[in-house]
Design a protein around this nucleic acid. Structure first.
Lengths: 228, 228
DNA sequence: GCGATGCTTCGGTTACGCTCGAAGTATGAT
DNA sequence: ATCATACTTCGAGCGTAACCGAAGCATCGC
């Protein structure tokens, strides 16, 4: 009767609202302290501590001691990937926790998804790369073309370095706000890092939004055109 | 603070052991009645009924009335995909609900994963198809080659028909027992259906195992060789 | 019509786990 | 040394939801 992996256990870990909020906060990719995570979860630090212990025990989080702080991060990108896929599914079934606020539009425009760009701009970027022949798409599978390699070089991204990592170069990730795919993988990460480096955009302090400067906005739209 | 999809809600749905067991039972792809699912969940029918109502409300299940029976199935293959990915993750973190029994080895050898072949045989099949040049692999992405199309034709599978469906032809699916990829997508489904049609194998009545006949076993191993 | 089967709804019990106050440990600052 | 900060552990309190017995519908067979 009992056979196979226990999905109930990790379902239960994610199923608590406070824990889910903490995990969502960690999707931004930064390491956060227990106190910050308590804030994110809307609970006291004592409660957060027990939650964090459970999440760590379940293999979702790892902690790093640094002085009197404990920084928590998602264990690895398998966790990020898992959460992404659940988010995508939840969005597809209309399980939103909408509370439409002022930050909402900024979030839909551009936000960080674990370590890469998501939202309207993320989707636009992938669309443009596919339309321009830099990335080819077969079903859900993405791969970089020789053409695209040159194109990225001109932007300032060295693809050969990325290829040597064990992580997939291109991966498609379902966007919960747009319900379409955007670019994940090490290339997606590198592209976002590139924009931040160039000063085109910066990360919001207390949200997952990516805020583009007026100049950065212009450059981004020029670099990733879409035919009307 | 509140932004994006509510992963807690579906986490909680999957997080209850009884519900998780019912969902796992439905991964076999067949429609099951409320009574059968109660059995699978290890609970009474009354309790199962409330659970099923919740799962249906959450968009995970759909029911079909047929006489005085109610047949439940996973809503669509997005649900199957989601559960697969959670199972893969759970297995990677060692969250098993092992109760090593006699059925375990059969399950590791060959089992059904929503609608396609998984386990040792599933992994072997994909490996062999890749080694034989029928399927090409870039990162996690799989695609059928022209070569492979002919090869499948000779087995008795018409790929052109499958291509017209909206569902991806080839998809890789992480196998929790082997921790390696096997073939999903409409092609994976068609291949399994083909084996069952030919009488090479049949589905176990009360488990997810796929039982190969001695002759089917021989044919399968011949068709999908692996170099030692 | 009648009984039998499959499933849902209702009511009441139980228990698990989320929660926080208070106290305890560890690290850092003065 | 002393105090402050960051976090964990302990010990209740409490609420929600899982659970089942019993009753209520619905459908089938006769």
């Amino acid at each position: 009767m009992k056979e196979g992996p226990d999905i109930a256990q990790i379902g239960a870990l994610i199923g608590d609202p406070a824990r889910a909020n903490m995990l969502t906060a960690l999707m931004a990719g930064r390491a956060l302290t227990a106190t910050e995570l308590a804030e994110a979860g809307g609970i006291t630090v004592q409660t957060a501590s027990t939650h964090l212990a459970k999440l760590e025990g379940g293999g979702l989080l790892t902690q790093r001691k640094q002085g009197r702080h404990r920084y928590f991060t998602l264990s690895d990108d398998a966790v990020g990937k898992l959460l992404e896929s659940i988010m995508g599914f939840a969005a597809s079934r209309g399980h939103l926790r909408h509370q439409p606020g002022p930050k909402e539009p900024a979030l839909r425009k551009a936000r960080i998804c674990y370590d890469h760009l998501a939202g309207d701009y993320g989707v636009r970027m992938l669309d443009s790369l596919i339309a321009g022949g830099a990335i080819s798409q077969v079903d859900e599978a993405l791969s970089l073309t020789a053409n695209g390699e040159g194109h990225l070089k001109s932007i300032g991204i060295d693809v050969t370095g990325l290829k040597s990592t064990r992580r997939p170069l291109c991966r498609s990730c379902l966007d919960w706000s747009e319900r379409r795919a955007h670019l994940a993988g090490s290339l997606g990460k590198a592209l976002l890092a590139n924009f931040l480096d160039k000063g085109w955009a910066r990360r919001s302090e207390n949200s997952r939004s990516i805020l583009f400067t007026p100049e950065g906005d212009r450059q981004f739209l020029r670099l990733f055109p879409v035919e009307a």
